[in-house]
Amino acid sequence: MERRAVDWWVGLFVLLGIGALVVLATRVGNLSGFAFSNGYTLSADFNNVGGLKVRSPVKLGGVTVGEVTRIRVDPKTFMALVTMRIDPQLRLPVDTGASIYTEGLLGEQFIALQPGGMPQDLKPGGTITMTQSAVNLDQLIGQMIFSKASGGK
């Protein structure tokens, strides 16, 4: 094997490895989170975030338009304060609502946005005030049993 040919093949081999790693990182792994890195942030208070995690999707009409960047407890109100990053091209009205839903019965939780009709837009860093917490299945079953029991009397 000629010297130059070996060099070429080894170089290509290493490049192929690096290329494969980049594709793995962005396409298979979740390093592709920079998709919304230039987006603006919004926050929302929830009573209960359920199984919502950082990087959970934010959807509007079923389309992913952002992701959750931070979840913490507000020390004053004791509400869960969720910060999310939204696609910069999307301007949401100030009366937009946010709810936490579950994908299917056992799927992941995500934030669903319901745009309102006000002419003013939410400013970057703004807060969504109309929120609906995660549905707690245990609580729901408890309520059902309770209402059945009281209804039976």
Binding site: L21, L24, V28, N30, L31, E108
Partner: peptide
């Protein structure tokens, strides 16, 4: 297929440990 993969595979935890 891709979305579920991306949300459950971590770069350091899975890809780098495998390497």
């Amino acid at each position: 297929f891709w979305a579920q993969m991306q949300s459950n595979v971590t770069f350091t935890g899975d890809i780098m440990n495998g390497l």
